[in-house]
Simulated assay, not measured.
Amino acid sequence: MLEIRNLSKIYPNGIHALDNFSLDVGVGESVAIIGGSGCGKSTLLRLLSGLETPSRGESRLDGRVLREPDAQLNMVFQEPRLLPWLTVADNIGFGLRHLPSAERRARIDNVLEAIGLANYGPRWVKELSGGQAQRVALARGLVTRPAVLLLDEPFSALDAMTRTELQDHLLGLWNSQQTTMLLVTHDIEEAAVMADRIIVMQPFPGRIFEEVRVDLPYPRDRTSGEVSDLKRHLSNLLTRSLSEGRKLNRA
């Protein structure tokens, strides 16, 4: 499915953002990437999406080398990035203009209902709350039915209740569509409830510190002892990864 081999990024100013990152992600798998600032999480997604060019290494989707933006990979950013001069429906359907109008409308209506915004299609972006706007961004990412959905901290700007609600909505959509997800997040609980595997990153430069497989069934109870134990384990790994990263940076 998604194969990442020795991916590295050194910017022109000398910042070594990502070093020798390798990972295989299977069909329908949900993988979360966590780590402190400077560990290359967002850089990785930008490389995969074709928004940045790697300094070394490559990534492949179904054997095809990813060198530029690809229709089979969609990205959802921290901010909704909606077009204010278009309606909600037109924002969601922006990438469906090649489809017949009836099919385009059906897809838009289906995804609006799935995210809890049925009948919101005619509304303007300015009429939406922050949580509603981010739901529309998720719908836009999913409506084209991509093979891989890249998520760059999509819920970080939302309040805790809205964030939890949208996490559950996304899990429901992922379960029904079996879209492969690669989620970058600072939120340990978000990783614990949403991922089959969790990659803990080490900074300076960004590299894989540890991989954690999560064998808990979905949906996961955020208050359960198993999730609490997992969060504690991840917190300890993050502390160690940051400490070792600082040591390497000083060496």
Rank of each mutant, 00 (worst) to 15 (best):
G116E: 11
L128R: 15
A114E: 13
V143L: 05
V143A: 05
L151W: 01
A133C: 13
K126G: 13
E113P: 00
A118T: 12
L128M: 14
D152L: 06
A118M: 04
R135Q: 04
A133V: 14
P146Q: 13
G121W: 01
L128C: 11
W124A: 09
V136M: 04
Y120M: 07
P122N: 13
I115C: 07
L151K: 01
V143C: 04
G141P: 05
V148L: 12
V136I: 15
E113L: 05
L128G: 08
E127I: 11
A137Y: 04
S129T: 08
L151S: 08
A114K: 09
A137E: 01
R140Y: 01
A133W: 05
R145N: 10
L138S: 01
L149C: 11
V148D: 02
A147K: 15
R135M: 10
T144P: 05
E153Q: 08
G131M: 07
E127H: 14
V136F: 12
D152Y: 05
E153K: 10
K126A: 14
L138F: 10
L128V: 09
A139H: 10
L138W: 06
E127Q: 15
R140T: 01
G116P: 07
R145L: 12
N119E: 14
S129M: 08
Y120F: 15
G130W: 12
N119D: 15
A114V: 03
W124H: 15
A137F: 00
L128I: 08
A147W: 03
R145M: 04
R140C: 04
D152M: 05
P146Y: 07
G121C: 12
A118W: 12
K126P: 01
V143Y: 02
P122D: 10
R140N: 00
V148F: 04
A133F: 10
A114Q: 15
A118C: 10
T144E: 11
V136H: 06
R145S: 09
A133T: 12
R145V: 00
V143G: 01
E127P: 02
G131F: 11
T144K: 15
T144I: 14
E127R: 13
Y120T: 00
L149F: 11
L142D: 02
V143W: 02
G116K: 08
A137I: 03
D152W: 04
Q134I: 07
G131N: 08
Q134W: 04
P122S: 10
L151A: 06
D152E: 06
K126M: 09
V143Q: 05
A133D: 09
G130L: 12
T144V: 14
E127T: 13
L149P: 03
A114L: 15
R145Q: 14
G141H: 00
L128W: 10
E153M: 03
P122R: 13
